[in-house]
């Protein structure tokens, strides 16, 4: 099986490092940690699990091609994922402000047509823009089936996948015949979420994504990484969504600590009138 995984480098806020908004109303991410979008790391892990025998992961039984749209320094992110096991990488040279989900999907379509993967595996959302759309747009442009928010994937035969989609009311199981576009959810990296035809059913992976060994980091420097130009992939580069400004969320006013359960209940009843 050949799998294409689009990955995004994101600036990730945490409890200490917050997003700022400049006087001109632009979101500032200086000081935030740059890392691969977590969902995309999960997609790479999923792709690796589908193209190996889990009991002997060194022998590759398929191909995983990763692609990012970003400036030169996002190659560090690509190298990091090549070190965990991806086979090849592509970087399309653009900056974030030249992109929206629609341009990405159009350009990815051109890459898919060239690479002819069986599956395109994406993250369900990039955690900076929280847009949750590239997989769905790409599926429509390709005329392929889409299975979004995959919490489990079972490949019985190379030509079909049974996918457990995490939806509001529970898990919706669908069977898709390849080629298809799949976006992954958090639970996809649990020990038994991905069942590949190459791996014994009894095999359990470690929870989460695999880390690169030092040797692999060295070896990854020699794996193929090619650069492409956006203009060669899509002629239509007009943004469909633009941001005219930004603001920070209103701060919640500081609350109080209560001494005990009795005081909590009394405050909820009499002060907040919430009971």
């Amino acid at each position: 099986m050949k799998i294409l995984v689009p990955i995004k480098r994101v600036s990730d806020p945490d409890n200490a490092n917050k997003v700022k908004v400049s006087a001109a109303g632009k979101i500032e991410t200086t000081g935030l940690e740059n890392k691969p979008n977590p969902f995309d790391e999960y997609a790479v892990e999923t792709a690796l699990r589908l193209t190996e025998n889990g009991t002997n992961p060194k022998a590759r039984l398929g191909e995983v091609v990763i692609v990012t749209f970003g400036p030169k320094d996002t190659e560090t992110t690509l190298r990091g994922l090549l070190a965990t096991g991806a086979d090849r990488a592509i970087r399309v040279d653009v900056t974030d402000d030249q992109l929206d989900g629609d341009i990405l999907a159009r350009a990815l379509k051109a890459i898919v047509e060239k690479e002819q993967p069986d599956v395109v595996l994406l993250g369900k959302q990039a955690v900076d823009g929280d847009s949750n759309q590239v997989a769905q747009l790409l599926a429509e442009y390709l005329g392929w089936p889409q299975a979004t928010f995959a919490g489990s994937i079972k490949s019985d035969a190379d030509k079909a996948l049974v996918i457990g989609r995490e939806v509001d009311g529970g898990t919706l199981n669908v069977k898709v015949t390849l080629p298809a576009v799949v976006s992954v959810d958090l639970r996809i990296v649990a020990p038994t979420s991905v069942t590949s035809m190459h791996t014994p059913a009894t095999h359990k992976y470690a929870d989460g994504v695999r880390f690169a060994a030092l040797m692999a980091i060295m070896a990854a420097k020699k794996k193929p990484l090619v650069e492409m130009k956006l203009a060669d992939l899509t002629g239509d580069v007009g943004l469909k969504i633009t941001y005219k400004g930004a603001e920070l969320p209103p701060a919640r006013k500081a609350g109080v600590k209560v001494k005990n359960v009795q005081e909590l209940v009394s405050k909820l009843k009499n002060e907040a009138k919430a009971l």
Partner: peptide, 20 residues
């Protein structure tokens, strides 16, 4: 129409417009 969207896990809101 101007659309307000939470981004970065709700740590900022963007004011978006669609051009279509």
């Amino acid at each position: 129409l101007s659309y307000k969207r939470p981004m970065y896990a709700g740590n900022a809101y963007g004011h978006a417009e669609l051009t279509t």
